[in-house]
Computed example of a mutant assay.
Amino acid sequence: MKNLIVLIGPTAVGKTDLSLTIADTFQTDIISADSRQIYKDLKIGTAAPTPKQLAMAKHHFVGILDLKDYYSAAQYESDVLKLLDNLFKEHDIQLLTGGSMMYIDAVCKGIDEIPTVDNETRQMMMKKYQKEGLEKLRDELKLLD
């Protein structure tokens, strides 16, 4: 039987140390469910694992993206489910830990199928924002909503 241990809680309550103990006990990897620790340039305010802690167990989704990279809870769900398929081939117990409930819910309960915004539309809206400002975009959203 395959089991996913889910360890949740706010920042700085000791999840990292407990997750290392759990990972050691069950000889499993640690899958981070933290929407900020996933970015490599956010070292302050995220309570990211230290290099020593990272060396104690294999971690996934810690420090893998640049701040400019787009990433969503839907993408996280897809990536984690693929990873779990592979990890469960090696071990029957896996560990998901963090404080981003949207990420945890996406993995444990699924997420609604919401289409992602293509890069062309993102760039167009960013240019519009830079040219016309936030107030103009807000007015347009109010009109369309």
Rank of each mutant, 00 (worst) to 15 (best):
Q75G: 02
R36K: 09
H60Q: 10
K89G: 00
I30E: 09
S78N: 08
V62L: 05
K142T: 05
L143W: 03
D145V: 02
I5M: 05
N86F: 00
I22L: 15
G99C: 09
F88E: 01
M124F: 05
V80S: 08
I38Q: 04
H59W: 12
T121Q: 07
L87M: 07
D145E: 08
D118K: 06
E77I: 02
F26L: 08
N86E: 00
Y71P: 04
I38S: 03
Y70N: 13
D85E: 14
A12Q: 13
M126W: 02
K128V: 06
L67T: 12
H91Q: 15
M124Q: 01
N86T: 00
T25R: 12
A47Y: 05
G110Q: 08
V80E: 04
S19H: 12
V62Y: 03
K131F: 12
S100K: 04
G45L: 14
Q27G: 06
P49W: 02
C108N: 02
I93M: 14
L84M: 05
Y76G: 07
A73F: 13
D34I: 11
E132F: 03
L84W: 04
Y39N: 14
K40R: 10
N86P: 00
L83N: 10
M102P: 00
T16W: 11
A48G: 12
T116L: 15
K89S: 04
T46H: 09
L143P: 03
D69C: 15
T50V: 12
A106E: 04
A48Y: 06
H91L: 07
Q37C: 10
G99R: 07
T121A: 04
S35T: 06
I5F: 09
I5D: 01
A12R: 15
K89M: 06
Y71H: 11
I5S: 02
P51T: 11
K127G: 10
L134C: 04
I8L: 10
G63W: 14
V80C: 12
L83T: 08
T121M: 09
I38L: 05
G63F: 15
Y103N: 06
Q75T: 04
D112A: 15
S32H: 03
E135D: 14
Q123F: 02
L18Q: 07
L141H: 03
L96T: 10
K58D: 11
T25H: 15
S78Y: 07
L96E: 13
L83W: 13
S72W: 03
Q130R: 00
S35H: 04
E135S: 11
D145C: 02
L18P: 01
D41E: 11
K128A: 05
H91I: 06
T50W: 09
A106P: 05
F26G: 02
L7G: 03
L42E: 11
Y70T: 15
D112S: 12
K89T: 02
M125A: 09
L84K: 02
I8Y: 10
A47D: 08
D118T: 01
Q130D: 01
D85I: 06
E132K: 01
